[in-house]
């Protein structure tokens, strides 16, 4: 028993639990990798929220922390519901034909496996304001397309579209969920004269809630760590990390910059812990409220 588990226990201590505690310790220090860590108490956390006093002078704090938090909340609040709605809608389309479902499912699923770096490069090209096909298409409709990755208002929506391209894994889950709904439930409600919307509202939706719950939790955990697409698209347009005008400066991007560009290891560790706590609190809230709206049973366990 011990023999079987010992490599995992070693790995857990050295690569997970140990580093977790270390990063908690670093979050109370000033550490630039050159001189040894210096204990500064809660100063990193005070700097984060702009409540730091240095040598008797009030310090304005991290000027971009708020921006990074707002951008991250934006991408989750706008992106995640759209992902779920589109995934359910596409999965429902997939339940209609009698043949060819597997072929379509394969095509929808594939982009979610594509490397984020490659996908981001392609989408920066697709969203090119002048030569990109998206604005050319809008031009044919007589719409003057926005500057997308060059406009702080439209850069995040472009990333949402990139995110929707990769909803294949969610589609597969919802399709499996839909195929698990017992036929007789639909027959029963149809006998009572329910229309299509009522069938969705009172049968399909409740039966899908476990999958919605799962994709919500995964979506929030991933959303807080949103990095690859934002980093690659901002650097590819040539205006640097976070550009345009810090509209793509997400929490994890700013954390990465603090740690590995400025080597503010202590401050970055403090940001990481706040990220961790936020993830846990939101997951806990979802778990606690899940009893009210998540229906378990009837084929889904």
């Amino acid at each position: 028993m011990r023999l079987v588990l010992s490599p995992w226990i070693f790995g857990f201590v050295v690569f997970t639990a140990g580093p977790m505690l270390l990063s908690l310790y670093y979050s109370f220090t000033h550490y630039d990798l050159i001189s040894s860590p210096r204990w500064i108490g809660l100063d990193n956390y005070r700097y984060m929220i702009g409540k730091l006093t240095l040598n008797g002078q009030p310090n304005q704090g991290d000027p971009y922390f708020g921006t990074a938090v707002r951008n991250t909340i934006w991408i989750i609040v706008v992106g995640l519901p759209l992902r779920i709605v589109f995934a359910i809608a596409t999965a429902m389309l997939l339940t209609r034909p009698k043949r060819g479902v597997n072929g379509y499912r394969t095509l929808f699923f594939m982009p979610s496996m594509a490397p984020t770096v490659g996908a981001s490069l392609v989408f920066v090209y697709l969203f090119n304001p002048v030569t990109g096909p998206i604005n050319q298409f809008l031009g044919h409709l007589g719409i003057n397309g926005p500057l997308w990755f060059f406009d702080p208002t439209w850069a995040k929506p472009a990333l949402v579209v990139l995110g929707l391209w990769g909803i294949g894994d969610a589609i597969v889950l919802y399709l499996a969920g839909l195929l698990n709904v017992p036929r007789d439930l639909y027959e029963a409600i149809s006998v009572e004269g329910a229309n299509a919307w009522q069938r969705f509202r009172y049968v399909t939706f409740p039966m899908l809630t476990p999958v919605i719950f799962f994709t919500l939790i995964i979506g929030i955990i991933d959303g807080f760590q949103y990095f690859d697409q934002a980093y690659v698209s901002a650097t590819t347009t040539g205006n640097g990390v976070g550009s345009p005008q810090n509209s793509l400066l997400f929490y994890s991007v700013w954390l990465y910059e603090q740690a590995f560009t400025y080597f503010h290891m202590g401050y970055a560790a403090a940001m990481a812990w706040i990220l961790f706590i936020a993830t846990m609190v939101l997951t806990a809230i979802l778990l606690l409220t899940s009893r009210r709206w998540v229906h378990y049973g009837g084929g889904l366990s």
Partner: peptide
Amino acid sequence: TLMLPTQVTSIPLYI
């Protein structure tokens, strides 16, 4: 540990 953000461990691990 599935919930643990990579960022929490990646800084001390790098060090």
